[in-house]
Design a protein around this nucleic acid. Sequence first.
DNA 1: ACCTGAACACCGTTCAAGT
DNA 2: ACCTGAACACCGTTCAAGT
Lengths: 228, 228
Amino acid sequence: MARMERMAPKTRRPERRQEPLSRERIVGAAVELLDSVGEGGLTFRALAERLSTGPGAIYWHVTGKTELLAAATDAVLTGALGGDDTGTAPQEAIRALALGLFDAIDAHPWVGTQLAHTAQSPMLRVFERVGRQVQALRVPEAHWFTAASSLMSYILGVAGQNAANARRARPGMDRTEFLGGVAAAWTELDPEQYAFTRSVAGQLREHDDRAEFVAGIDLILGGITALR
Amino acid sequence: MARMERMAPKTRRPERRQEPLSRERIVGAAVELLDSVGEGGLTFRALAERLSTGPGAIYWHVTGKTELLAAATDAVLTGALGGDDTGTAPQEAIRALALGLFDAIDAHPWVGTQLAHTAQSPMLRVFERVGRQVQALRVPEAHWFTAASSLMSYILGVAGQNAANARRARPGMDRTEFLGGVAAAWTELDPEQYAFTRSVAGQLREHDDRAEFVAGIDLILGGITALR
DNA sequence: ACCTGAACACCGTTCAAGT
DNA sequence: ACCTGAACACCGTTCAAGT
């Protein structure tokens, strides 16, 4: 009896009584659903069940599925943009920002798809963050726009494609095992049509998406700093 | 009566008798439907009507919607990969290839979305084409994979995002009018949160997606050639 | 071998009715 | 003001039946 000191709280544990529905709770549940069951799993009925209501209730807080997906995307991206760059060298700040987005999209692959659909406002925030570092790199003003938009496009574009690749592999498969399989497939391609691809199959096997991603950033940064 | 020389052809116009269904015709009709009514308009029922059959007939030639979309994407991308690079300087060949893809995706914006979903084989073809030019640039072999995959990711990623932007603007709106509107909106952003974005609103106004796209390629090419 | 079209299970969205 | 849940219109896919 003394064993499990179950000092009952004075007030009953609050029964997990249904908090009221809210845009915030809905978007949160949507993100969870997207993460666990994928884009096809996000259904107003499934979402309603998870929130223990009817599907119609959701429409009181959200105009429809499009807005719901946009809000979910926004939530994830906002989380990834949390860091603070003050005091960091511009190149390093850009790498950190890029990796934050890369990891967020890798963890929530459906965000990659959404980026192509909506997501106006998060993109603007990315643009601003990148742009400030471009300024800090002392790039001539005439090149600011090009430099910032190239970087942003690369970051979001590549992160999105990486997520797509990840989705293709995923089914519990081990990473190196997967890469090995693809590399093996490359080796069996037609030697004439795919001479180059075959020649880098080995590099694929020991390749690291994340490192490759940063390497691409550095290529662009190299091009940008050459502008001054 | 002589006015409209309606010289009736000897043989009756061939009645446009129903050619038999085929994977090719189905994919062609799907591309047309996607172009004209967008991704939401591609329906087995709509497609069947356009081909004057029932929806079930399509399943004899195609396993489902996923394969249909992949095939449509493949068809467009294959068309864009038509050119021949032999005899062109590598940098120029890469720009041409990139622009071909950019224009194709711009003309068929739904391809941008699909790139994030499937499209394994067309990506491999892009990779090979880009890779050969990377070799021609005399990049050290250890960097082949990184250089080629950075370029490909940038090309497909940016082209896809451009298509998404285009879709946002499209409704018949004039291009410069549209850019002017966005630039004006940028000018009204919070000066503290969006200092950089506001400062390049003018550059946005006179900016050219296509030129910007190539400028980004050149940045990467700059970084790549710095590797040797 | 190929096509037909009704039928099935499921979806986003609406809305009268409730509290 | 907010929630309920049946109902509507529509979707991808299947399949027995036809030719």
